[in-house]
Simulated assay, not measured.
Amino acid sequence: MPVITLSSLNEIDAAAWDALLVGAQPFVQHAFLATLEDSGSVGRNSGWLPAHQLLRGARGELLAAMPAYVKQHSYGEYVFDHGWAQACQRAGIAYYPKLLTAIPFTPVSGQRLLGAADSAGELLDALVAGLPEQGLSSLHVNFTCTDDDAVLQQRSGWLQRNDCQFHWFNRDYRDFQDFLDTLNSRKRKQMRKEREQLNGQGFTFAWHAGHELSESQWDFVYHCYANTYHVRGQAPYLTRLFFSLLAQRLPQLIRVVIASKDGRPVAMAFSLQAGDTLYGRFWGCIGEYAGLHFETCFYQGMEYAIANKLQRFDAGAQGEHKLIRGFEPVLTHSWHYLCHPGLRTAVDGFLAQERPAVQAYAEQARTALPYRQLT
């Protein structure tokens, strides 16, 4: 069956692509991925060259698909293989270009192999077989879901890598105080104090859906987002146009909380809501305010999830500081096929040591949770 490579997601009908999705998959939707391309956030100039993979049947029907990019670097992936690339450089082995199946700049687990398991497996096998003739060193599939893991586990040569994130779970809390009541006394007092200090400084918070924000408000959102990169001397991954286009195409999924001080906007947190989950994605502030990050990025999202009866709040990839605020360790998975046999053997040995270390870290992290009792 023919495997087809698309240089743009706009080369395939959105309904056909989305028909392969299972459940709430906001970041794999055609509209989200196409917005990344149409806004110039991904493309040749960014080092993310779209190379989406399709498997069609004998009658031309779409059987499987994978969002994919040819990469000349490893930035914006959140599965860190820079060490592998550096080892290749020292050994005179070409690591780039590589083929990556992932959502650009988005460390959120979800469906990466679109379509029935047998068709997705056939597409994977065809891609692996064609890597050498295309001059690609490897194929990587990042932040997979359970169904993807099952498909990849059945195939030889694939190496699994684990990492740890921190997610907050709503155990049917009536309100934020109900959540606080589940914590030990010291942590409960700490959170209450952090929130009360901000309330006493004239901060207010307002939530907005995508269609409720004006272009001037999107200017503010982008300014905050870009500032988090500028203060580190980096260029932001996303363009200003991305936010306007996404607000046009997926307004029902967008949730933005804007923090104001004495009536003046000073910070924001941008999220998507889909299914039973709130996905916190971007934060930014135009000044320095003690405790504002915790309130805007964490407590506001937790409170929103409780009020809207959402079961999970995924607030992003990093931060052990989330532990003491009730975010629990969750393992994530990625898979890697490396063509060079020596590199594959070396990385396999490294991962054999890394996986139990990550598992042990997650188990140890649970001991730092603030709950009095967690079932």
Rank of each mutant, 00 (worst) to 15 (best):
F205E: 01
V3F: 10
Q311H: 15
R355P: 05
S109H: 03
L278H: 13
A247R: 15
E37S: 07
E61M: 11
G280F: 11
A206D: 12
A34L: 10
S334P: 10
P265Y: 13
E122L: 03
Y289V: 13
H82E: 15
I12N: 04
A307Y: 12
S41L: 08
T239F: 07
E303L: 09
Y279Q: 10
G60M: 12
F294K: 11
E320P: 12
A31N: 06
V358S: 07
A120T: 00
P341Q: 03
G92F: 10
A51L: 11
L351I: 04
L246F: 13
W207T: 01
A365N: 02
E295G: 12
W168N: 02
E328F: 07
Y361F: 15
W84L: 14
S41H: 07
I93R: 10
H333S: 09
D125E: 09
Q177P: 04
V108W: 00
R192A: 13
G319W: 13
A290F: 15
E61G: 10
A362N: 07
G263E: 11
M1C: 06
T228W: 06
L250V: 06
Q197P: 08
T5E: 11
P251N: 09
K189N: 11
W218N: 01
F270A: 10
P265S: 09
L331I: 15
Q248K: 15
